[in-house]
Amino acid sequence: MSVDTSAPATTSDTALRVADLTIAYQRKPVLWDVDLVVPAGVVAGIVGPNGAGKSTLIKAVLDLVPHASGLVEVFGKPYRKQRSLVGYVPQRESVDWDYPISALELVEMGLYRKIGWLKPVTRAYRSQALAALEEVGMADFANRQISRLSGGQQQRIFLARALVQDASVYFMDEPFAGVDAATEKAIMAILLRLRQRQKTVFVVHHDLETVREYFDYLIMLNMRVVAAGAVADVFTSDNLRRTYGGRLTLLDRAVDAIGGIRQ
């Protein structure tokens, strides 16, 4: 069955549905029974304390960590069938920046699926990648080896790679971490543009002060979904307390107890 990539948002207005998702490392649960239904076209923040499972949620949705149980659907079909609709921006620290590759070559990676196996990157694709670099203000650095870029510039070429992918749903793991003010503005502009193009974007985020400014949808996470919905509805002091308040919640203790028994 072929997937209509041109107008997926119109086939269903639910971009992401997660049901009963539980993730465990070494049998110790990291995410507990996550249920989410997120509408298409929102820029959604994912917030929560360290160890809340924010990155794990993204990786679970992208099928990069094994699920203990649960279901992930993108636009009404299992993720595995919808891979081409989903873009991923990993944490900046997750890769080796000494890898012998230029900024342009990194951006071209976003096109590999379109190019297809065994085929080289042709000039037409290269100019697409260059256009994406232009869009994030990095065209001047196209031929620079990636370790010779600043942290903010590295983040921007990651985003350029996501842009050329032309996905419908994006998952970004802490794009705002450790970037300069100029890059923060550039990322904001990209998020706005993605929203205008009817994309759905999930952003793991740390800075609570900018939540209202950046996002229209919010997922508050602490090993389970504490609250999810429009920012105006769920970004309340009550929910914040339930998300961040007291690291040693009852759930933590339960988890420690489970870990203790199983060990």
Binding site: S84, P90, S94, Y112, R113, P120
Partner: peptide, 22 residues
């Protein structure tokens, strides 16, 4: 030679490679 770009992607960032269909 045949899988140049696939190996480049998979050795640079295996997780990203998987999400991109490699």
């Amino acid at each position: 030679a045949a899988l140049f770009k696939e190996f480049r992607l998979a050795t640079f960032d295996p997780e990203l490679a998987t999400t991109l269909g490699v």
